[in-house]
Amino acid sequence: MNSAFFGITLSLAGYWIGVWCNKKFRSPVFNPLLIGILLVILVLIVGKIDYSVYEIGGSYINFLLTPATICFALPLYRQINLLREHAMAIMAGVISGVVASAISILGLAAAFSFSHEEYVTFLPKSITTAIGMGVSEELGGIVTITVAAIVLTGIIGNMAGEAVMKLVKIKNPIAKGVALGTSAHAMGTAKAFNMGEIEGAMSSLSLVITGLLTVIAANIFAGFY
């Protein structure tokens, strides 16, 4: 069996069931993205289907990521006035987030007595995969683990973002968007769009700035451990 439609249908079905569960149970644990991923993995394991069979369809879905990310430009453009008005707050939030991310990895690396290699592997975990892989490679990290860390960060951000914001009583849509985009890249941004267009636009902007600033921050922080 080597039809691309198998992997595509399975992914859509998994996500669709995830959305249904999310509506039914109204809890962040029932995150559509997480449920979708787990259901696909379950079907592959139970059905003894090789990952490569799924990947034929998966690669077509992946192909749409670049054009979809580019389309973040539209909501960003629609919210340009808000963006201009609050440029200071957004920039300050993103910069503190980039530094906070690096500090948290530094602290946790020390707590778990990571090797330098493991430390730099996790440094770019909050940014988009394409940039993160490059940073990890340049600093001498384990690129495959970096990719896994980035994807897991995205899943966690997508899952818990809304609940965390509620917990620390952040209600402003701009602050929510900046927080999601800075901490959980495009997967957090997908959630932000779910919450509203302002959240989504702010998250899109933050993910771009965070990606670029993290290249610099990771290079500096790599020397600290």
Binding site: H86, M88, A89, I90, A92, G93, V94, S96, G97, A100, S101, S104, I105, L108, A109, F112, F122, K125, S126, A149, L152, T153, I156, G157, A160, G161, V164, M165, V168, I170, N172, I174, A175, K176, V178, A179, L180, T182, S183, A184, S206
Partner: peptide, 23 residues
């Protein structure tokens, strides 16, 4: 799991609080 969960939450809260505070 610990590094990713704690690191992500920490980053999210700091970013959100700083932005929210200035706003």
């Amino acid at each position: 799991i610990l590094v990713i969960t704690l690191g992500t939450f920490f980053t999210m809260v700091v970013t959100g609080k700083v932005t929210d505070g200035i706003l």
